[in-house]
Write a protein that binds this DNA or RNA. Structure first.
Length: 359
DNA sequence: GCATGATGCTT
DNA sequence: ATCGAGCATCATGCG
């Protein structure tokens, strides 16, 4: 912080977006761009990232990362530790609009993993003596569900051939062989795959991967040309959503969409994106809940010492007795994999380690 | 003490 | 203006 104050030539509250905006864009006269909803200068990461060449901005970004991890996790989680030395989160079953479960007091579904400091926090979650951590992750469950619901021939084939879906997508969109896909191309394809699930726009994709809106639009166009089943699904789901007023998951669970009859264009557009996303995210949630119940029951029926301690949307974490590792892996594998039969296989990544940090 | 906005963490 | 679903922290303003 003192470095930042030196570079600014004054002291101020770095945690205050208002004060920070004034220092950067008024006092130091850095090039300003976006404003936030309250009419102030935005100081969000994507704005600061573009000003990284200024030493003070670079230091602020680092300060942000560290202070977030410290206040929310390092310090925040300390106060959540119970007398038994463990943290007991509350899992809510009736909160989300899509059918996912949520976690509060504290939220254990957003423990850091992205940054190096974040991984150190994850590493602090350890099993009790004689136990280890075994996890099962659904691989690309949402895209597999999309392939299934849309019955898209090319996407189904990619999964049946067990291809890396992002690399495969890049190869097709850029019309090149799999082997020639660069990191950047895979990254762009991944962003499109991700965006498609949420109902993408060329603008939002361009923001995501830092290309022009025009180029982003071309990526999407090329994508939908290759995955024509997805294109047809997008059109069909919006149409039926408008007709019925709701969409449903593979288990028939409904989400009503009053947004679709809003007088406001932006709200209706939001409704369309939700119509596209809800069946996908909601079906993934259905599948996970079925698997979760089966895993829990099997652990119980077999009177194993291992216990289910965490669910993070596409991942189940089991604090596993060291003499039960192989059995627990098998329980996770078959119950998660066979939870629902899609047109493509459900792949499960299993891992075992001595903390919440994989690898 | 409570609500809201800005920000950032996860999948 | 413009990507789905959440929750926590901090600053700030209101009472």
């Amino acid at each position: 912080a003192s470095d930042i104050f030196d570079l600014a030539g004054m002291t101020f509250n770095i945690n205050s977006p208002k004060q920070l905006g004034n220092v950067l864009f008024e006092e130091l006269k850095l090039p300003k761009s976006k404003t936030n909803a309250s009419g102030g200068y935005s100081t969000s990461v994507d704005v600061l990232e573009k000003l990284k060449m200024y030493p003070i901005v670079d230091k602020i970004l680092y300060y942000r990362t560290v202070s977030k991890l410290y206040s929310t996790y390092a310090q925040g989680l300390l106060s959540a530790i119970s007398s038994d030395g463990r943290i007991h989160s509350k899992f809510k079953q009736t909160v989300t609009a899509t059918g996912r479960i949520s976690s509060t007091d504290p939220n254990l579904q957003n423990i850091p993993i992205r940054t190096e400091i974040g991984r150190k926090i994850r590493k602090a979650f350890i099993p009790e003596e004689g136990f280890t951590i075994v996890s099962g992750d659904y691989s690309q469950i949402e895209l597999r569900i999309l392939a299934h619901i849309a019955q898209d021939k090319n996407m189904i084939k990619a999964f049946l051939d067990n291809e890396d879906i992002h690399t495969s997508t890049a190869a097709k969109v850029f019309s090149i062989p799999l082997q020639e896909v660069t990191k950047e191309q895979r990254y762009a394809a991944k962003a499109v795959n991700f965006g498609i699930i949420y109902g993408i726009s060329d603008y939002s994709l361009s923001q995501d991967i830092n290309v022009s809106v025009k180029n982003a639009g071309k990526y999407i166009k090329d994508y939908l040309e290759h995955y024509s089943g997805v294109k047809e699904y997008m059109e069909r789901i919006v149409k039926t959503a408008i007709e019925n007023g709701y969409v449903k998951t593979i288990y028939g669970r409904r989400r009503y969409l009053p947004e679709l009859s809003s007088p406001k264009h932006s709200v209706r557009e939001f409704g369309k994106r939700v119509a596209l996303n809800a069946p996908i995210q909601g079906s993934a949630a259905d599948i996970m809940k079925i698997a979760m119940i089966k895993v829990y029951n099997e652990l119980k029926t077999k009177k194993l010492k291992s216990r289910l301690i965490l669910q993070v949307h596409d991942e189940l974490v089991i604090e596993t007795s060291i003499d039960e590792i192989e059995e627990v892996k098998s329980i996770l594998l078959h119950n998660m994999r066979d939870s629902f039969e899609l047109s493509v296989p459900l792949e499960i990544d299993l891992s075992q380690q001595n903390s919440l940090l994989k690898g």
